[in-house]
Structure formats: structure tokens, C-alpha cells
Design a protein around this nucleic acid. Structure first.
Length: 429
RNA sequence: GCGGAUAUGGUGAAGCGGUUAACACACCGGUUUGUGGCACCGGCAUACGUGGGUUCGAUCCCCACUAUCCGCCCCA
């Protein structure tokens, strides 16, 4: 009986994992530059953590969540996104306390789970890098977070980026706009797509980014949220725009942009790429926004917050073009099995000095071993045969120049670093 | 949840009613003793997704299932 991985999951194998490690290293570097520190929260939480934060009616909660009952009868769920768990941890660990600097900035990297039909750039188990910053309502922080997202993608090598922003305003804004939108759309009720008819009752904002052609025509004449902003919300948004301008970050305002999670308010943003790998059109690779009120919703004190999530798989599609070349310091060539004992000891000694060593375990002939060494991009090959065993030396060959010379076992064992550097120096002469 | 396409060895890919199921790549070995390339020679593999059906005969036709890919919904 053989098995295959669950639908929508992926094995990240050597060849790919190097690229993931590179992405993670770049992510950590960028996050550190903005003084975000890593937080690691559980992959699963109480179901309520997600349903309360994302909204009971959001698609993510109603049809995409991997929820289950544990053996103790508790309703749990695999995290569909990163923010809820981080907010829960923020509240539970009382990170709002006066001893913590504000904003309290954290980042995370890890797998998320959504029960969806897999397709290009979308899986059931997927990965996000994300940040959250708590405790500061200043629009300057909104701008900094957007700058961070943009820097992150650029550092990861993503090109053809477009920053799109919008505001959902404060609760008063939202209430007024919600009413206006329903008033406008209701007369068109019969003309709306089937999906949008449902949305009209459930979440009319969603109709704004319907892809149905007729819906779009109707939406064109719909009231714009920007006209319903309270003075405070308008001031916040214009300040964000000013800071972005000051940073030289190009952006578009899309008044019809809505996000899938109900907890957003004020600034929301997406960074998209129209790189050819997404064949046709802009695809969102990073998105987030402000979620003042969410901390309270999960039982904490009134605390503003803002953050974003970045889809690693989508970024990986962009990074795919990059090639990771690795090289190997030493390949040990053994002439026959009699050399194995000495080879193992030398390999061990060199590895302990911090250099990677590979060797043959199949008893292949020298030619094949050199071929492997070349394939692994070995810098040096050390050959051990009968003569070398007798004289306690190895033939060291610089693979780049082809130069070869004998070196005593003892020297390899005690001072490999110097030898290695000297031998490779020859390269540059 | 809905729609479309596809399923042949480690990989890519021909064949489309009767074949030793091509070919290429990869891998292994050899071309005289222990050195990376090329060439040539040889070897290699539990390959026709699973289960039914049609047929004298099915990789090929039909049905179902499963899986994968792509799109919709939704989203990162």
C-alpha cells in the first residue's frame, strides 16, 4: 500500500527547501530592520478565537476552516490565518502591560490551513509571513507597515509590484456607508449575480469587488466609502497617504477594495504583482490592514492594531527563477574499500573543523567519484588510495584549477582551515 | 460547493484495438591499472492511476471512482 500526501499539501524537498530558507532569512532580516521580533503561536486554537475575530459569516470561517473536536470534546480549529492567534497571545500574556514598549511589534512565519480547492498559488496547507503591531493608532505606523511589506517583497525579489490602499473608516463610517450601499443596491437586486444576491443580505461590501461583469457595472454607480468617512477617519487616511508620499511609495487608491476578514477598519492595503508567473492580471501576494477593536473582541483592553500577511507560496513562484548554487568544500575520493577507514576518519576530522565533506559509499571507481564531486561543486577533492595509506598523505586537488599536491593526514586533521584557504588562493593567481 | 482538462518507467514523452510499449534525459558500467568534459558501446527500471464494462483480444473504446492541474467562489 502506498500513500500520497493530503490534497492541497506539498512536500518541500531539497532543491526547493534552499529557496525557502533563503526567503526566511531575508524575511528575518527585513523584519529585524523594522524591529519586529518573532512570535510563535500554536497551529491550532479554540474555534472561537477564529470565529470571533474573522467574523461568523466570513467565508473563511463558514466554509474554509479545518475545525475538529478534540478528545476532550473541545471545538478546535487549525489556524486559517495568523492574526487571530497572535492577538490571543497578546491578550493572554498581557503584552499590553505598561512594561512593554508600544507599538508592540511581532512577526511570524508558518503554515496556515484552509479547506479549499487547490489551484495555482493556492493550497490547503500554505505558508505566510506576517507582522502585527499593537498599541499605536498613529497613521505613521500604517505607513511604516506598508513600507515594510513593500520592502519585504522587494528584498525577496518580487517585481512588478503595485500597492493598493483603501480605508474602511471607523465604525460610524462603516455603518453609514453600509446603509447607503444597501439603499443603492436594493433596486438592482434582480440584476445582481446569484452570488451577489446572497452578499447583499450577508455582507454587501463584498459586492464591490465582484468579478461578475454586470455586478461591476452596477457597482460603478454605487456610493463610494470615501464620501462617507467621518472627519476623523478621513484625517487618518489622508495622513497615511501623506506619509506614503513622503516615503516615495507609489500607490493606488481602490475605493472598492474590500478584505475577506471582518475585523478590518481604517487603512487596508494589498500589494500585488503582475509578474508573468501569475499569467494575466495582478495577484495579491501581501495584504493587511488596521484592526482596531480586535484585541477587545478577544478579551483584551481597547488596543489598536495593524498588520499584514504575505503568501509565501505565491512569493515562491516569483523566486522560482532564482537558482541557488551550493558548493561543497571537500569531496573525499576513495580508491578502494581499504581506504574507507582512513577516509571516514579524515572526513570526521575535517567536519569537526567546520567544513562539509562528502564521500562515496558505493565503491565506485575514481572517475565516477570525481564526476560526483564536480556535480556537487566540490572545491577540493582528497584522493586516498593504497600509496596514500602507506605514506599517510592524500592527493589534494583544487577542482577549479586542476592542480594537485600531496598533503599529510596530520595537517588535515589539525589545520584544515589554513590549508583550505591557501589552496583556494591559488585560484586567484 | 461548481466547471474544464489530464492520468504511460526516476523524469520528459510516443503509441490509440493485436507492438519485444518507441525515443530522449537521468542513473550504472565499459572503452586496459586511480582523476571531472566529449564521443562511442553496453546495462537499467514492480510504466500503461484504480475498479468495472464492450470485445476473440484492451495502454488504446465506454462507465464509475480516485488523484493531479487549471478556472469559479473565496483568498495570501
Amino acid at each position: 500500500m502506498s500513500y500520497q500526501r493530503p490534497k492541497g499539501t506539498a512536500d518541500i524537498l531539497p532543491g526547493q527547501s534552499e529557496l525557502w530558507q533563503r526567503a526566511e532569512a531575508i524575511g528575518r532580516r527585513v523584519f529585524d530592520a523594522y524591529r519586529y521580533q518573532e512570535v510563535r503561536t500554536p497551529l491550532f486554537e479554540n474555534y472561537e478565537v477564529f470565529s470571533r475575530s474573522s467574523g461568523d459569516t466570513s467565508d473563511i470561517v463558514t466554509k474554509e476552516m479545518y475545525d475538529f473536536e478534540d478528545k476532550g470534546g473541545r471545538k478546535m480549529a487549525l489556524r486559517p490565518e495568523g492574526t487571530a492567534g497572535v492577538v490571543r497571545a497578546y491578550v493572554e500574556n498581557k503584552l499590553y502591560g505598561p512594561e512593554f514598549a508600544k507599538p508592540y511589534k511581532v512577526y511570524y512565519m508558518g503554515p496556515m490551513y484552509r479547506y479549499e480547492r487547490p489551484q495555482s498559488g493556492r493550497q490547503r496547507e500554505f505558508h505566510q509571513f506576517g507582522v502585527e503591531a499593537f498599541g499605536v493608532d498613529s497613521p505613521a505606523l500604517d505607513a511604516e507597515v506598508i513600507a515594510l511589506g513593500s520592502d519585504l517583497l522587494k528584498a525577496l525579489g518580487a517585481g512588478n509590484l503595485k500597492v493598493v490602499i483603501n480605508t474602511l473608516g471607523d465604525p460610524a463610517t462603516r455603518e453609514a456607508y453600509h446603509a447607503a450601499l444597501i439603499a443603492y443596491l436594493t433596486p438592482y437586486q434582480d440584476e445582481l449575480s446569484a452570488d451577489s444576491k446572497v452578499r447583499l443580505a450577508k455582507n454587501p461590501l463584498r459586492i464591490l469587488d465582484s468579478k461578475d461583469k454586470r455586478d461591476q457595472e452596477i457597482v460603478e454607480g454605487a456610493p463610494k466609502i470615501l464620501d462617507y468617512l467621518t472627519p476623523e477617519a478621513a484625517a487618518h487616511f489622508s495622513a497615511v497617504r501623506g506619509f506614503l508620499d513622503g516615503l516615495g511609495i507609489q500607490y493606488e487608491i481602490d475605493a472598492d477594495m474590500v478584505r475577506g476578514l471582518d475585523y478590518y477598519n481604517h487603512t487596508i492595503f494589498e500589494i500585488m504583482s503582475d509578474d508573468p508567473v501569475f499569467d494575466g492580471g495582478f495577484t495579491t501576494v501581501l495584504a493587511g490592514g488596521r484592526y482596531n477593536g480586535l484585541v477587545e473582541e478577544l478579551g483584551g483592553p481597547e488596543t489598536p492594531g495593524i498588520g499584514f500577511g504575505m503568501g509565501v507560496e505565491r512569493v515562491m513562484l516569483l523566486m522560482q527563477k532564482q537558482t541557488v548554487t551550493t558548493s561543497l568544500p571537500v569531496y573525499l575520493v576513495t580508491i578502494d574499500d581499504k581506504a574507507n577507514a582512513a577516509a571516514l576518519q579524515l572526513a570526521h576530522a575535517i567536519r569537526q573543523q567546520g567544513y562539509a565533506v562528502d564521500m562515496d559509499f558505493l565503491g565506485r571507481k575514481a572517475k565516477a567519484q570525481f564526476k560526483s564531486a564536480a556535480k556537487e561543486n566540490a572545491q577540493l577533492t582528497l584522493t586516498i588510495g593504497e600509496e596514500e595509506l602507506a605514506s599517510e598523505t592524500v592527493q589534494v586537488k583544487n577542482m577549479a584549477t586542476g592542480a594537485q599536491k600531496p598533503v599529510a593526514f596530520a595537517e588535515l586533521r589539525t589545520n584544515f582551515k589554513q590549508l583550505y584557504e591557501e589552496l583556494l588562493e591559488a585560484d586567484h593567481e
